[in-house]
Amino acid sequence: MDKEQYIKFSDAQIGSTINRPVLVSAIEENTARNGNKFVRVSLKDGFSEVTAMMFDTSEESLASLGIRQDTIADAEISVSEYQGSKSFKIVQIRPTADSTLTVNDFTKLPPVDLDLMYTEICSLIESSSNDYDGKYTPLSDLTLKILTKYKDSFMTSSAAVSMHHNLRGGLLYHSYRMVKAADALCGVYTNLDRELLLCGTALHDIGKVWEYKTSISGDAEFTASGVLLGHLYMGASLIKGFASDGNYNKEKVQLLIHMILSHHGTQEWGTVSCPAIPEAFVLHYIDNIDAKMYMCEEHYEKLDPGEITEKKPFGLDNRLYKPNY
């Protein structure tokens, strides 16, 4: 599907009606005060996701029309204003007659090719290899073994349910930008252990491949392991297990595990341990920077130059302004 041939949700004008194919990603049934049923339907257009209302309708009645979660549908949607924001209402919806459409047509992906990002991460890690004159197996070897074994999950997992990089391939994209940032900082702060920092950065969120279950369209939800253990613990345990089979520098492996356990920075943000080495501090801050940059990028897509977000975005400390130039 040529995504550009249809009006995007983000470009839809208040007062207009749009007709386009959509992916139904979720359906939530509710009851109004008057007792009538209505549904909130989450729709994807391949660029973003919106919630559209459909009144005097139940989940069962939509199912009778063939509309369920993960259905590709043709929809007529009216756009209005409610409390200063765009509001979407489904006028009509039915399963699409276009048999060429697939879920991938409505799945938002990172702006950088997945294979390219994975290859560049591995190349940078390989270039950082340090065997201490043959005394130890390089930490980069351990990292590449992990990334190779879990390549498919690492490349397709979301990095979050909703906070940042919450899309298919989001974990890879987040890790890719962070590894590149970490490598650049090594050229400024030359006392940093480049191998340790790049390996820690690449693996800092590896536990998320078990913390979240990511659907083919990029929606993520917590797993039981994610709720009970969390990605910091699972990532650290993974590294400890792989390190038991190899002649790795034990202290350096311990420092790598420390970086995984401390990258949230503070106990308020759920860290297990606070950063205690320079590489752990750098990892924490570039993690925070990349998350904030992604949030800014997402909100900038919805703003025109000179506009300010209506509310303070969740996770940020102020409303965002998009420069008028």
Rank of each mutant, 00 (worst) to 15 (best):
K302M: 13
A160K: 01
I216Q: 14
I27C: 09
Y321C: 08
L109W: 11
I289Y: 15
L283I: 02
L62E: 05
S87Y: 12
F242H: 02
N191F: 13
S99Y: 14
A291L: 12
K8A: 09
V188R: 10
V253S: 03
H164S: 10
L23S: 05
E49A: 13
E28C: 10
A63D: 07
Y212L: 03
Y150M: 05
Q92C: 11
R68M: 06
Y248M: 04
F9D: 02
L256M: 03
G230N: 00
F38N: 00
M293V: 10
S153P: 15
R33I: 00
K37T: 07
F55Y: 11
V50H: 00
A276Q: 10
K8L: 11
G35P: 00
S10C: 13
E60D: 08
N166P: 05
L203H: 02
Q69A: 09
A160F: 03
P111Q: 09
Y173R: 14
T119Q: 15
K135D: 15
L185C: 09
E268R: 02
E221R: 06
A276V: 11
T17H: 08
R94K: 14
M54L: 06
K151A: 01
Y6A: 11
T271S: 05
F38L: 06
K208M: 14
S85W: 13
F55G: 04
